[in-house]
Computed example of a mutant assay.
Amino acid sequence: MKHLAVKLGFCAIPSDAQKIIRADIYSIDLPTSYFVFCSYYDFRKSSITTQILYEMAARGIAVVLGVKQLPKDYEFICQAFFPSDFNLIRY
């Protein structure tokens, strides 16, 4: 996720990215956020939070979530990255 934050232009180097990535979605103030980086999110845990994230992404706000499994309901609006994809990133 750190390399993805660099690729998207939110930070210059991966060590800076650790400062903007949160471990829990509830440690982020969603109504005032300009972007969301969360290392783990469970879509089944809270449908209200999922709806808020969906609306943020629809408005063009970057929403980057680490998930174990992406529900089929959200596959059409998501772009999945896997750890092997980051070998192709050049700085």
Rank of each mutant, 00 (worst) to 15 (best):
M1K: 07
M1R: 06
L4P: 09
L4S: 06
L4G: 06
L4W: 02
A5W: 03
A5Y: 05
V6H: 06
K7E: 08
K7N: 06
L8C: 07
L8R: 13
L8E: 10
F10G: 06
F10H: 04
F10L: 01
C11I: 05
I13G: 01
P14C: 03
S15T: 13
S15H: 11
D16W: 05
A17W: 04
A17T: 07
Q18K: 15
Q18Y: 08
K19S: 10
I20P: 02
I21E: 01
I21C: 03
R22A: 12
A23E: 15
A23S: 14
A23L: 12
A23K: 14
D24T: 06
D24G: 02
I25F: 07
Y26D: 15
Y26V: 08
S27A: 10
I28Q: 02
I28S: 05
D29T: 15
D29Q: 08
L30H: 01
L30P: 08
L30G: 07
L30V: 12
P31W: 00
Y34E: 14
Y34I: 08
F35G: 07
F35K: 04
V36H: 03
F37G: 04
F37M: 06
C38F: 01
C38M: 02
S39Y: 01
S39D: 07
Y40Q: 11
Y41F: 15
Y41K: 08
F43A: 10
F43Q: 10
R44L: 13
R44E: 15
K45H: 12
K45N: 14
S46A: 08
I48V: 14
T49G: 08
T50W: 05
T50N: 11
Q51H: 11
Q51K: 14
I52V: 14
Y54Q: 13
Y54I: 06
Y54G: 08
E55W: 02
M56H: 09
A57H: 06
A57P: 05
A58I: 03
R59Q: 13
R59S: 15
G60N: 05
A62D: 11
A62I: 06
A62P: 01
V63Q: 02
V63S: 02
V63M: 04
V63E: 01
V64M: 01
V64E: 01
V64Q: 02
L65I: 12
L65V: 10
G66H: 08
V67C: 09
K68E: 15
Q69E: 15
Q69C: 11
L70N: 01
P71E: 10
P71M: 09
P71W: 04
D73C: 00
D73G: 02
Y74C: 10
Y74P: 04
Y74W: 09
Y74T: 09
Y74F: 14
E75Y: 01
E75H: 07
F76E: 12
F76D: 11
F76N: 11
I77V: 11
C78R: 07
Q79F: 08
Q79D: 07
Q79A: 09
A80T: 15
A80Q: 15
A80R: 15
F81R: 10
F81D: 03
F81A: 03
F82Q: 09
F82V: 11
P83Y: 02
P83L: 00
P83S: 00
P83W: 03
P83D: 03
P83K: 02
S84T: 14
S84N: 12
D85P: 07
D85V: 03
N87L: 13
N87Y: 13
N87C: 11
L88G: 12
L88Y: 14
L88W: 09
I89K: 11
I89W: 12
R90F: 10
R90C: 12
Y91W: 13
Y91P: 00
